[in-house]
C-alpha cells in the first residue's frame, strides 16, 4: 500500500548552481548579509535558501555567502571575469571581506518532506516546515497493526462483493464505504450488470444519501422566505464527510469526482485503472488544483487479490 501524493512530495531534490563567496572574517557576517540582501537580493524562487552556510572542518569554522544564481557562461568567459563584473557593484569594504569565489549546488525547491530536507540541507541551509500529515502518509507504517487488520477486513468485504459481481456477470469491481469512528461498514456495492454508469462507488454514495433524512422541512424554499426556513439536520451524516472508501479498483474519473462532491476523507484501492482512473492513473483529482476538496488516497491495497478477480 502506497500513498498517491503530488510529485512535489515524492520527487528527488534537484539542484541549481549558485555563485558563493567564502567569508574570512566572521565578525563581518551580519553586515555582509544585510548589504547583500540590499544589493544582491535572492530572486523570489530562491527565497527558501538561507543566505549563509557554515561548515566545521577540524574545528575550523568556515562561512559561505550566496551571491547570484550561476547561469551558463558565454563561451570564453571565465567565472573570474563573471565575478569581476559583479564586484564593482559592491562597495570596496564588502569585497575585501570576501574570500574564494566558487560555484556550489543548492536545492532548487523548498523541501516539503523530511527526506527531501535531509538531502537538501546537506547541500545548502534551507527553510523547511514539517508537515506531520504528509510525513505520516510517507512513513513505512502509516497505520498501526490493529488499524491495518481492520482495514484489511473492509477491503476483503469489497473483494467478496467483487467476486459476487463476477458471478453475476458484472465487472469484478466493488467498494465499501466505512465510518472509521464507529468502525462500521455503511454501504457496499459492486458494479452493476446493465448500466455502464452504475459503478460501485456511485451506488455506494447513493446508499449513503439514503441514510440521510430530509433536512429542510415545511414549505419548499423560495427566494423570499429563506429567513423562515425550518432547518434541522436529522441525520448524523452529511454526504460522506469523515467516511472512507475501500475499493478493489482505482475509481474512474466520474467516480473520483463524485467522491469530491461527496466530501470523502480517505480512499484505499487495490489495482490501478490505467485507462480511466482519476486518482493516480489519468488524473489526480484528489489533489487537483482548483478543486475545493482534497482527500488522502492509498493505492495497491490487497492489489493481487483485486487483479486475480479479473483473471478468473
Amino acid at each position: 500500500m502506497k500513498p498517491v501524493l503530488a510529485d512535489k512530495y515524492t520527487r528527488n531534490v534537484t539542484t541549481v548552481d549558485y555563485i558563493t563567496a567564502s567569508v574570512a572574517d566572521r565578525t563581518q557576517l551580519s553586515t555582509l548579509v544585510s548589504e547583500f540582501n540590499d544589493l544582491l537580493p535572492l530572486p523570489p524562487r530562491f527565497c527558501h535558501l538561507k543566505r549563509v552556510k557554515s561548515t566545521n572542518i577540524e574545528n575550523k569554522k568556515k562561512y559561505y555567502i550566496l551571491m547570484v544564481p550561476f547561469k551558463q557562461l558565454p563561451a570564453g568567459v571565465s567565472l573570474f571575469t563573471c565575478v569581476k563584473h559583479l564586484l564593482p557593484s559592491l562597495p570596496i569594504e564588502i569585497t575585501k571581506c570576501l574570500g574564494d569565489i566558487t560555484v556550489v549546488k543548492v536545492p532548487d525547491y523548498i523541501p516539503l518532506t523530511s527526506m527531501q530536507y535531509t538531502y537538501a540541507k546537506n547541500l545548502w541551509p534551507t527553510v523547511y516546515s514539517h508537515n506531520p500529515k504528509i510525513e505520516k502518509q510517507l512513513s513505512k507504517n502509516p497505520f498501526s497493526a490493529t488499524e491495518l487488520l481492520r482495514m484489511k477486513e473492509y477491503m476483503r468485504s469489497a473483494l467478496q462483493l467483487a467476486n459476487n459481481a463476477r458471478l453475476n456477470g458484472a465487472l469484478p469491481v466493488a467498494s465499501v464505504i466505512v465510518d472509521p469512528v464507529k468502525k462500521q461498514i455503511l454501504a457496499g456495492q459492486h458494479h452493476s450488470v446493465d448500466s455502464c454508469l452504475d459503478h460501485s462507488i456511485m451506488r455506494c454514495i447513493q446508499d449513503i444519501a439514503k441514510l440521510q433524512k430530509p433536512i429542510v422541512t415545511g414549505s419548499k424554499r423560495t427566494i423570499d422566505d429563506s429567513d423562515n426556513l425550518n432547518i434541522s439536520n436529522s441525520s448524523e451524516y452529511y454526504l460522506c464527510t469523515g467516511l472512507e472508501v475501500y475499493t478493489t479498483q482505482e475509481p474512474c474519473v466520474m467516480c473520483s469526482m463524485a467522491l469530491v462532491h461527496a466530501r470523502i476523507s480517505k480512499v484505499f484501492y487495490g489495482m490501478a485503472n490505467i485507462e480511466m482512473g482519476g486518482l493516480g492513473s489519468v488524473y489526480n483529482i484528489h489533489y487537483q488544483e482548483g478543486i475545493n476538496h482534497h482527500f488522502d488516497v492509498y493505492k495497491g491495497f490487497l492489489e493481487q487479490d483485486s487483479i486475480q478477480l479479473f483473471q478468473k
Partner: peptide
C-alpha cells in the same frame, strides 16, 4: 468533471 466523464463514457 464527474458529468463530463459520464458523458464521455
Amino acid at each position: 468533471v464527474m458529468c463530463s466523464a459520464a458523458l464521455r463514457m
